[in-house]
Amino acid sequence: MLIELQGIVKDYRLGLEIVHALNGIDIRIDQNEYVAIMGPSGSGKSTLMNLIGCLDTPTEGTYFLNGSNVSHMDDDQLAEIRNREIGFVFQNFNLLPRASALHNVELPLIYNGTPASQRRDLAEEALIKVGLKDRMGHRPNELSGGQRQRVAVARALVNKPSIILADEPTGNLDTRTGDEIMDLFEDLHDGGNTIILVTHEEYIAEHSDRIIRLRDGRVERDESN
């Protein structure tokens, strides 16, 4: 089992009020699954994504990722887990604006101490995989939206993480470019990667094999597609 969430509760303090963002979530995800997490805004899907992505820890419950319990890790341990196990793809790409595509992709390798010589090779390999062989030296503002998202995917891939976690990856792209990105995810899934997609678009979720629907901080439905 790659991901095992047991009785996850997440509360936020909002002034004097306590907001229950997640109210007891149990989810298990296997290696090489392609899962979409859906739900209206306020359903808790962003909170769930932050927890799965190890950007945050739950108030209650346990989270096993690839065999280790990450629910009580400190900031630095979480950073290392994120670096090793998770590849993020964001709606707004989140690339460093002044760094080349190659340097953006190298970034995760820099933080795990990969030697410079290997870094370059690995980053180039990842960029070739997403079809950006000729764009390695370009900065994000010299690339189209689709190309930027491909750089982000390459960055997510470069460390060979357990999960690729994509948060509305087509939200800032036109339909055609969005479809290209979804095709890319399809390829990655076929190549053995585990993909978790957070979206509120039905037609995007259609690409996945399994859809988990959230409502009011609970799993409403969890069915294969």
Partner: peptide, 16 residues
Amino acid sequence: KREIGIRMAIGARRRD
């Protein structure tokens, strides 16, 4: 701030 967030998401520790 965004850059710092990106670096942290990607695996930069606080000391980095």
